[in-house]
Nucleic acid binder design. Structure first.
Lengths: 229, 229
DNA sequence: TCGTGAAAGTTGTCATACAGATTTGAGCTG
DNA sequence: CAGCTCAAATCTGTATGACAACTTTCACGA
């Protein structure tokens, strides 16, 4: 049965998407030119282009001017942007759910990083902690370093999905935290927590790393609760 | 500083996206008409429309013909589709990472469900287990029930993010599992595991539920390893 | 007060044209 | 024959104009 489609592009999107998801079109492969697609779907170039734009928005295609549209490599970018969008929109309704989600994943990341993190990640983490001490009190820079710290650990976990998913929610959680507090000893408290985590990871102690991360994030969650979010 | 943008729409997307994500534009609110946006960005309608199409692809806008484009409600749909797309594309490269991700989240869901799940969810779970016994051996139906079981637990966790994220990866993991095995006692093994999980949840024992779920998923992971995925 | 219907506003689609980038390939050079 | 060059072909990006189809608005009349 064919459903009346309010938009010609909707059906085209479905069809191309299906071919990508079931592997008929492989990553890196080129999509037929817009003109060819016009013939195939018997539609104007306008419609074809709108379908391509939406698929680009979903992260399934990348387009090069003068060359063509190509099936995107498996990238976490689209997942990250979608997660970011959801995290933003849901901020009032389910912020606590987002925080719990973050705690679960980051605790696991810390545990894994204690086992898998290489010297380059450890070095990066040490540098970030040093930076945080320097910029103590400067909210924007401190926040940036804070995010970098957590993302570096996620990368150190060796699981790209954790890193991608976290990249999406991290910024929002931390920004939100810092716009709502600026006490002096709060900065040093965060730095101490980070140092604990770093020590456990670099000592290769998974459980201690997980525990330190969990305590750090739970204290941050408590602040939200206190603020009545 | 203004960067040379290969596409006029890129900058427009960024700007509108920012206004949505930082809350300047609220969910449900109407975007200015395409004509107005043309004036504001000093661009042709073609460019404006391409920007809107991409934002629709990202799930940030929904459009009604004859009325306008509206900021989307915080829906997990876009997150789910993005996750699904990633899960499909990544299937060869990082399937194990996806499985680990799933194990982490589902274990937590089982733990939470033991505390939060209401009678309606418990009833649903019991029905699903009963169904699985009936359709034992019929792969498609069994798979469908299997997915339903895990998703019901995710919903029972009380955290919508877990449910949304899982919805994306669940189908792929389970389908993949079942296309690679069909032994007779495998079916009964899965049912036994599910019953263990259900018992722990309905008894309100978080740790036992988490443990049962973890064992269930780890055994499923072992199969993949054995298959040399 | 409550429809009702015309008018205004808005998105969807088509056709055409050209700018600007990339790819291709024929022909030249060594 | 191998490799280079450069022009032609191909392809996407953008602009413009037009009209269809749908929604919203609002003045008018019962």
């Amino acid at each position: 049965m064919v459903w009346a489609m309010s938009q010609r592009s909707a059906g085209i999107i479905e069809e191309i998407e299906a071919e990508i998801l079931n592997g008929k079109l492989q990553p890196g492969e080129r999509l037929p030119s817009e003109e060819k697609l016009c013939e195939r779907f018997n539609a104007s170039r306008t419609v074809i282009r709108e379908a391509i734009q939406q698929l680009r928005g979903r992260g399934l295609l990348r387009t090069t001017k003068g060359s063509g549209s190509y099936i995107a490599d498996p990238s976490l970018d689209s997942l990250t942007t979608a997660m970011e969008a959801y995290a933003s929109l849901v901020v009032e309704a389910g912020f606590m759910e987002l925080i719990d989600f973050r705690i679960l994943i980051e605790t696991e990341c810390a545990r894994l990083a204690a086992v898998h993190a290489g010297e380059s990640v450890l070095k990066e983490l040490r540098q970030i902690v040093a930076t945080m001490e320097k910029v103590q009190g400067v909210r924007a820079k401190f926040s940036k370093a804070d995010i970098a710290f957590h993302l570096a650990i996620a990368r150190g976990s060796g699981n790209r999905i954790y890193a991608g998913v976290l990249g999406a929610v991290e910024r929002r959680c931390i920004d939100y935290a810092q716009t709502n507090r600026g006490d002096d000893d709060w900065y040093s408290g965060v730095i101490d927590s980070h140092r604990d985590i770093l020590d456990a990871i670099s000592a290769g102690l998974p459980d201690r790393a997980a525990d330190a991360m969990r305590r750090h994030l739970l204290s941050s969650k408590r602040h939200f609760v206190d603020l009545g979010v």
